[in-house]
């Protein structure tokens, strides 16, 4: 198991808890729902990679305290 795949599993597990009624509006990326986000992360496309990068930054920031 690599560190990258562990991180991806962590992010996917977090996304599974996202309520279905939430829509994320992201300009040129359009409007994304829970399944869209999960697909981007699974595929590892540019947006999926960016999402993981910011999620990790967010988790580190919260761990250290805002």
């Amino acid at each position: 198991m690599t560190e990258d795949s562990d991180i991806k599993k962590l992010i996917l597990a977090r996304l599974e808890t996202m309520p279905e009624y939430i829509q994320i509006n992201l300009g040129s990326f359009g409007t994304l729902g829970k399944e869209d986000l999960i697909n981007h992360v699974k595929k590892g496309d540019d947006f999926g990679k960016k999402f993981i990068e910011v999620q990790m930054k967010y988790l580190r920031t919260f761990k250290q305290g805002m």
């Binding site: 009624y21 939430i22 829509q23 992201l26 300009g27 040129s28 990326f29």
Partner: peptide
């Protein structure tokens, strides 16, 4: 410097 995001509730759009 990146996409601006905001959340919406699809039942209230």
């Amino acid at each position: 410097t990146e996409p601006f995001s905001f959340l919406t509730n699809k039942n209230k759009e």
